[in-house]
Simulated scan of single mutants.
Amino acid sequence: MSGGGWSWLGWALAAILFFWGIGAYNRLMRLRNAIGEAFRQLDQALTARAEACSKLLTLLRPLLANEQATFDALETAQLEASSAAQAARAKPYAGDPLAALAVATAVHGAALTRLNSLVEHHGELSGMSELNALLDELKLIERQRAFARQVFNQAVSQYNEALQQFPTRILAGLYGFAEARSL
């Protein structure tokens, strides 16, 4: 009779471990999917910023023809940021595409800052309502982007924290989960 008791206990333990493993997998998937959702919101803000920058370039190019180098730098940075975002869309929790996106968005932000300084330097542009509206739109988009980035980084942090917890850490490797990179 004691042999049957151990058999029952063994099956119960196996069932507990099996269901715990399913629960751990589902939790990691939910947290990784949350990274994807947070990235979609960040990506929307990046796309809105690119569109607003394009409008700004279209407006300013004819007015400041001698500042072509600044416009070209912003346009190049915008293309690189868009390309990096495209690569990161497939796996927003993967390290290399996010590292490239972090660099590209920083370069784009610096080029945009240079353009803003250029606009401030040309005081005659301050009375243009269309320009002021675009600059206000960009400020709003930048706040949205910063918030979306914060939400994304928080989702990455929660996911990475779950990966580091024992015994989920053991199963994470078996399931193919790897640490995500924040921006």
Rank of each mutant, 00 (worst) to 15 (best):
Q164V: 00
N132C: 01
H121N: 13
L171W: 13
L56S: 05
A88V: 01
L140F: 13
H108A: 15
A99W: 01
D43M: 06
E67M: 03
L125M: 03
V156N: 05
N116E: 13
A100R: 14
A45M: 05
R114V: 07
E51G: 14
L131F: 10
E161A: 13
A69H: 09
A133G: 07
L9M: 06
H122C: 00
R30I: 10
Q41R: 03
E142T: 09
L118C: 04
L74K: 02
T70C: 04
G176E: 08
R181A: 13
T58H: 12
L163A: 07
L42V: 01
E179W: 05
A73V: 05
A81D: 08
W11K: 07
L118E: 07
W8C: 12
G21T: 11
N132I: 06
F177R: 00
A99V: 10
Q144F: 06
W6F: 14
N153L: 07
Q144I: 08
P167E: 00
R61H: 00
L140C: 10
F177Y: 03
Q41C: 01
K139E: 15
E120I: 11
G95Y: 10
E75Y: 14
N116V: 12
L112V: 08
G95H: 14
I16C: 10
N33S: 15
A65N: 12
T47S: 12
V103R: 09
A77M: 03
E37D: 11
S182Q: 10
L17W: 11
R30Y: 10
I22R: 02
A14V: 11
L101K: 05
S157V: 01
Q165T: 12
G4N: 14
